[in-house]
């Protein structure tokens, strides 16, 4: 059973939702051999909202996110970006369309500093005549701008990120995702393995992204704290399809969990 919210609503802050979602995936099918991972899954992400994708292991949320991020190409279904059909079959396709992903393992190089991690793979360089010399000063200025915009100015830009705390590393990974001004940021388990206070800081940082008008998709198992308290809409997935959709402010963790495992309670709360 699937229930959809009539319109997404930001929990608080200046949500800039419009009727046209930033990205919209409809009726996505994806199989891996005989395993039918997605059976017509759908999700919309509007500007200024945080959408949580939740579900039990094997529910299809990670596959749906990977389709969104271009890691997997969908077998069938519609992928629209700002109302227009889009082809997103590789991570670089997603990047070109303004979709950034923060993976659970953060994909940081511990031996590099924050600036080097932020720009990894996209360094500003000088002439090829000099072997592609990195324009460190320009990179650093842009890194400072982004960190300042995200109120992370106190983070050291020159320490190896391996010497930083889990929360600081998560912040660096999020800062990297917004460096190139994406429209949508996908975060996979952003609060996993963080202390309560560090998780709250990361949650606040994610809220600031939505406040800036970005669409945010979060995959999380932290139902009772992060998902219920820090997101705007919850899409519950079960067996590769949407099982329920809630406005976060209207539900409790128990109701979400109930929907995840197949109970009926709370399924129609959205809208």
């Amino acid at each position: 059973m699937t229930a959809q919210a009539d319109e997404p609503s930001a929990r608080d802050g200046p949500a800039t939702n419009s009727s046209v979602p930033l990205i919209s995936l409809r009726n996505i099918q994806k199989s891996f051999g005989s395993v039918h991972a997605l059976r017509g899954a759908s999700v919309d992400v509007h500007a200024g909202e945080i959408v949580a994708l939740v579900g039990d292991n094997g529910a299809g949320k990670s596959t749906l996110v990977k389709v969104m991020a271009g890691v997997h190409a969908a077998d069938s279904g519609e992928y629209e970006i700002e109302g227009r059909p889009a082809i997103v079959r590789t991570p670089s396709d997603a990047t070109k369309h303004g979709i950034a992903t923060v993976y659970q393992d953060l994909a940081l190089c511990n031996n590099l500093d924050a600036v080097q991690n932020l720009f990894l793979g996209r360094e500003l360089t000088g002439s090829r005549l000099f072997g592609g010399r990195i324009r460190r000063a320009e990179c650093e200025v842009r890194a400072r701008e982004v960190m300042s915009r995200m109120r992370l100015s106190n983070l050291s830009l020159s320490r190896p990120v391996g010497a930083m705390s889990g929360g600081q590393r998560q912040n660096i990974a999020i800062a990297r995702s917004v460096l190139w001004k994406p429209k949508v940021v996908i975060l996979d388990e952003p609060t996993a393995a963080l202390s309560h206070s560090a998780a709250q800081q990361v949650a606040d940082l994610i809220r600031s992204l939505a406040d800036d008008g970005l669409g945010v998709v979060v995959v999380s198992h932290d139902i009772h704290h992060f998902v219920v308290n820090s997101t705007d809409r919850i899409e519950v997935m079960r067996l590769g399809a949407n099982a329920a959709s809630f406005r976060s402010k209207d539900v409790t963790g128990e109701m979400v969990v109930n929907a995840m495992v197949g109970g009926n309670e709370g399924v129609n709360l959205a809208g």
Partner: peptide
């Protein structure tokens, strides 16, 4: 110390998967 290639050597040595995902 100065070039993109040099930086990528260090990045790959520490986390080749992260480097790959970064487009290297």
């Amino acid at each position: 110390n100065e070039t993109q290639f040099g930086l990528y050597l260090y990045a790959i040595g520490n986390n080749a998967e992260a480097a790959r995902r970064a487009g290297i």
